[in-house]
Design a protein around this nucleic acid. Structure first.
Lengths: 194, 194
DNA sequence: TGTACATCAGTGAACGCGCGTTCACTGATGTAC
DNA sequence: TGTACATCAGTGAACGCGCGTTCACTGATGTAC
């Protein structure tokens, strides 16, 4: 049964976004191609009509995940009152829903160390996704120059990723919420005031 | 060939510290029992005389890693001039050597998301190691009450872990050093002044 | 003190399992004549 | 317009591989008598 180009593109999309989610939820090593394909409704043999290898899918899925993440952040920032963009981004990032949904959340918090272990060639491809991500958040950062704002996005989102990861290790919901609240207070104070 | 109890304890130690290192370097899923045992100089069959399962080893190795990490931190803090303990801890954590040596460094930065994905029962055991770790660093934190100091250790080390992970993803050594320097400046200012 | 037996850390082959990848095949659609 | 053929997304079995775990075995030491 031959399919239309649109049909192929649609399935390609499905595999990509399902992988972006599954990798973040279970980690790259624990997410099998078979599982992803089954969730999409296809057999695992068909995978190689869409991607060269699992590594290839991984890099593309990470890119997709950064893209989704960036889109969501920009969305909340734009619909915030004038000058409140950064505040709502921090609040959204350090929220209980985000802590409870790694599959649709920050890539660094879900896969950071795994990305750090990839060979240089892979890391360089991933870096481009990260740079694009930071670029989108740049307009909402305070600072006179582009360099200052870039350094701030980097520092802020790297730090918040560490907090989110640590929160996710904690078992008690109260403790998690307490840690998030503490972190929100700190980062809001450090990055949005003057 | 039967061995003395000291001999067994010595090998148990070796397996544990080798695992603590290998897990941090390669991640739990990518570090096989066979590899660890071979590095220790034993066949993989002997593993089960020392540990119940790989999961068991993982939890114990993570505990060991936190212990090593805490020991190192306390060491530098204690040998610093009066009142400079926190400063040298931050500088050591956010150093290039630490960024380049995940195997002997921070557990959260090396295995954070993986810990977060473990079942509750495992996370609870790991939490105890984390609490012990934080307890050791507590004396070097500023703050009137124990609660304030505890919240600060938590926030500071979670944030720094995120920075370290992000730095490790970056491919350019200059960029890495620049990110570390920026972070050092920020955390020193935020946690050691006043 | 000497001897027979129990213990148990360690060996290395074997196990089942899931994975990434390959392969021969299918069959509806597009293309050539 | 009709017919023969090429294309190629998708199938599902099969492949090799490495892994965690099990198992029968070894043999030096500790213990019982």
């Amino acid at each position: 049964m031959r399919y239309s180009p649109e049909h192929k593109a649609r399935n390609h999309e499905k595999i990509l976004s399902m992988a972006a989610r599954t990798f973040r939820e279970r980690g790259g090593d624990s997410s099998g191609i078979g599982t992803v394909m089954k969730k999409v409704g296809l057999g695992k043999g068909g995978f190689y009509r869409h991607f060269e290898s699992k590594d290839d899918l991984f890099v593309e899925a990470v890119g997709r995940a950064f893209d989704e993440m960036g889109r969501g952040m920009v969305e909340v920032a734009k619909s915030a009152p004038e000058g409140q963009g950064l505040r709502v981004m921090i609040e959204r990032y350090l929220s209980t829903p985000h802590a409870n949904s790694p599959g649709i959340g920050c890539v660094i918090a879900a896969l950071g160390p795994e990305l750090a272990r990839k060979p240089l060639s892979v890391r360089k491809r991933i870096e481009r996704s990260i740079e694009a991500y930071r670029e989108r958040l740049l307009p909402f950062m305070p600072g006179q120059t582009r360099e200052v704002r870039l350094a701030k996005v980097q520092l802020l989102f790297a730090s918040m990723a560490g907090v989110l990861t640590t929160v996710r290790v904690a078992s008690s919901p109260e403790r998690r919420e307490q840690m998030l609240a503490e972190a929100r207070k700190f980062f809001l104070k450090s990055f949005t005031e003057r």
